[in-house]
């Protein structure tokens, strides 16, 4: 079995030890690391599609993400930071203040990371100022704000309003997540979009980054 097929299989089967073995072998035997990462990325996208189609259950998708992370943990240090940066955009992600729901946001962060975004996960119960300060500090492209309650959704509006007040709204794309978030809410507060699962969120993020 060639390395491409084997690496694709490692991701789609969520086989962490195989993914790590392939990554180590690629470095030891001077394989083209960028080509290998392209293959792995293709496989993680396929895993996402399989989840959306109902062929994969969420734990299977998560195992694929775990295998991808394991491989990238070995491959990334072998890349030249100047020539080979694989990060496609910087993302700030968190659950808004007053809300401690964490898991949905973490899944989105994991899938964004697996697809090549540089993710800064601020956790849950994050104040608006912390989102914005971090986004400015790292020169982020996207801010993803999760809210699972109708009472905490107002924090998403506060974030947009604060960006406008600071005259930096245009600097960032803002994506909203959470069960109560509708397209109407996105339009009402002037955000850039919403997605109802981690795979759709990655697709939307890439679309907004024109990737």
């Amino acid at each position: 079995m060639d390395l491409d097929t084997k690496s694709k299989e490692a991701i789609l089967n969520g086989n962490i030890s195989l993914a790590e073995e392939i990554a180590r072998k690629a470095i030891l035997e001077n394989y083209d690391i960028n080509a290998l990462i392209d293959t792995l990325s293709e496989a993680i996208r396929e895993a996402g599609d399989l989840f959306e189609e109902g062929e994969f259950f969420l734990p299977e998708l998560m195992r694929s993400a775990e295998a991808m992370k394991a491989a990238m943990g070995i491959l990334t240090p072998a890349l030249s930071p100047e020539k080979d940066s694989r990060f496609i955009a910087k993302v700030i992600i968190g659950t808004i203040e007053g809300d401690i729901h964490d898991i949905g946001k973490t899944l989105v962060a994991s899938m964004l990371s697996a697809e090549g975004f540089e993710v800064y996960d601020l956790g849950a119960d994050v104040p608006v100022a912390t989102f914005i300060d971090k986004a400015v500090e790292v020169d982020a492209h996207l801010i993803c704000v999760s809210a699972l309650l109708t009472t905490t959704m107002v924090g998403q509006k506060k974030l947009i309003d604060t960006l406008k007040e600071r005259n930096i709204r245009e600097k960032f794309k803002v994506l909203l997540g959470g069960a109560p978030v509708s397209k109407g809410w996105v339009e009402e507060i002037g955000a850039d979009g919403t997605a109802d699962n981690a795979i759709s969120a990655v697709k939307l993020a890439k679309k907004l980054m024109m990737l």
């Binding site: 959306e52 189609e53 109902g54 062929e55 969420l58 734990p59 109802d196 699962n197 795979i199 759709s200």
Partner: peptide
């Protein structure tokens, strides 16, 4: 644990 969007394979058996 299933995607809420899935139109196909709704009755897919778990491994």
């Amino acid at each position: 644990l299933r995607s809420g969007n899935s139109t196909k394979a709704r009755n897919k058996e778990a491994s």
